[in-house]
Write a protein that binds this DNA or RNA. Structure first.
Length: 418
RNA sequence: GUGGGUGUAGCUCAGUGGUAGAGCACUGGAUUGUGGCUCCGGUGGUCGCGGGUUCAAUUCCCGUCACUCACCCCA
């Protein structure tokens, strides 16, 4: 077959969809319990939106975006993440004028042109939240506590929560200078990527996975020691609040995220176990206090996170799929198929999920089908039943069967299901 | 972008230098209109694609494409 799904993009067929529904439902329930409301943003945005927010020198912008020119010569990009869109929408609609604190959530596909691997796709799904207007640190702790609770609610227990603070602009300026002063004598020992990063975004050197770079980074001056008093107080209070909440966490001074817009609080949740392969970052987020202002909005602090739904799905324990029909209607003879269709409609009108195989076939084969799709009830309609105004109600689980007046059939099914 | 692995039935995989098999799935039957278990039968494959060696290639060689895993990056 020559026409296939695009590399790194896959179909989700009905057999898998119940797991997705369960995941999405759990997310919505969790964030709505915290007062978040759903927002939906376009999948296509102006390219500049991502270049300016995520950062020109990040891997995402440099080599992973699906960027194209539309017929009006505008450069557009398939969103690689949703925070930039959320900020754009927040500013565009002057949301700050309506409420002091805005809490949004979103769920949807994102696009990055990476080499696919286990748990990494070119179209992947993220769910996330954004809080505008609250400088923290208490809301930071609430957000982290929310994600920990959400992941636990899915039955995923083996996780690690990492937090860090990279401070605000002043801290960043001072620390970057100190870091460069430290790195300069080691420049030749660093990998080529890191040598480049020194010029573009020195913080990323701390995150490098190349062994030698990691060794050098380990002895680098600590970012946490360079925090300004305000940034320090913010981070301390965040930790104190997490302790009060009983939320487990570990401070990791080398945690630096791949997007440039972050300030102060950063956090990440790592999954364990082989189901995930090498892609163990389940969730990442942090504060981005400067972004709203840089997009022309009022000076508004903000924090958010995004979870990778595909990875969460892999880490989730399996559960038995639920039946998707309640009643399977069977026409015992081909002559009563029209009547069977009508019976199906009568049952659906009472709220039941009803399916039947109107192609006909033997009673045996139709019963087999009812069993295969896990229907609780098989309702058998034959010529003698039609003549008597009755149906056979067969409970496939209890293995019982009774003749019921057709008028009573729906009621009887509801009794069995309850 | 760099490496490794794998391409045979819808799925999971055996197998052979002489045009192919199993299990599962699907489907029919085991006497009248009754499912799951068991037994018997059936449908279904240009052996990824192209080239080469050979009397003969699914099998050997080369190339190519696809999928996949790791590095990298990230969710």
């Amino acid at each position: 077959m020559s026409l296939r799904a695009v590399k790194g993009m896959k179909d989700i067929l009905p057999d898998e969809i119940s797991k997705w529904h369960r995941l999405e439902r759990a997310f919505r329930e969790c964030v709505e319990a915290h007062g978040f409301r759903e927002a939906r943003f376009p999948i296509v945005e102006p390219t500049a939106l991502f270049v300016r927010s995520i950062g020109e020198t990040t891997d995402i912008v440099e080599k992973e975006m699906y960027t194209f020119t539309d017929r009006g010569d505008k450069s557009l990009t398939l969103r690689p993440e949703a925070t930039a869109s959320a900020v754009r929408a927040y500013v565009q609609h002057s949301v700050q004028g309506r409420e002091p604190v805005t809490k949004w959530y979103y769920v949807g596909p994102m696009y990055r042109r990476e080499r696919p691997a286990k748990g990494r796709y070119r179209q992947f799904y993220q769910a996330g939240i954004e809080v505008f207007g609250d400088p923290g640190p208490y809301v930071d702790a609430e957000v982290i506590d929310l994600v920990v609770g959400f992941i636990a609610s899915l039955g995923i227990t083996e996780v690690e929560v990492l937090i860090n603070s990279i401070g605000g602009p002043e801290t960043r300026r001072k620390y970057t200078a100190a870091l460069l002063a430290y790195l300069e004598p080691h420049r030749d020992e660093l990998c080529p990527d890191c040598q480049r990063r020194m010029g573009a975004n020195p913080l990323r050197v701390l995150d490098c996975k190349v062994p030698r770079c990691g060794e050098i980074a380990a002895d680098a001056p600590s970012m946490l020691k360079h925090l300004t008093d305000d940034d320090r107080a913010h981070f301390d209070e965040l930790q104190a609040t997490l302790t009060t909440l009983g939320t487990p966490y570990r401070v990791d001074g080398s945690l630096v995220r791949g997007l440039d817009y972050y300030t102060r609080t950063l956090f990440e949740v790592l999954g364990k176990g082989e189901a995930l392969g090498a892609q163990n970052a389940l969730l990442g987020g942090g504060r981005y206090d400067e972004m709203v202002k840089s997009f022309g909005g009022p000076d508004t602090p903000a924090i958010g996170f995004a979870v990778g739904l595909d990875r969460l799905l892999m880490a989730m324990p399996e559960v038995e799929p639920e039946a998707h029909v309640d009643v399977f209607v069977i026409a015992a003879q081909p002559t009563v198929r029209a009547e069977a269709a009508l019976l199906g409609r009568e049952l659906r009108d009472t709220g039941l999920r009803v399916e039947s195989d109107l192609r006909g076939g033997s009673l045996k084969s139709q019963l087999r089908r009812a069993d295969k799709m896990n229907a609780r009830i098989a309702m058998i309609l034959g010529e003698s039943e039609v003549a008597a105004g009755a149906v056979q109600v067969k409970d496939l689980l209890e293995k019982t069967q009774q003749t019921v007046f057709r008028k009573e059939a729906a009621k009887r099914v509801h009794e069995i299901l309850d």
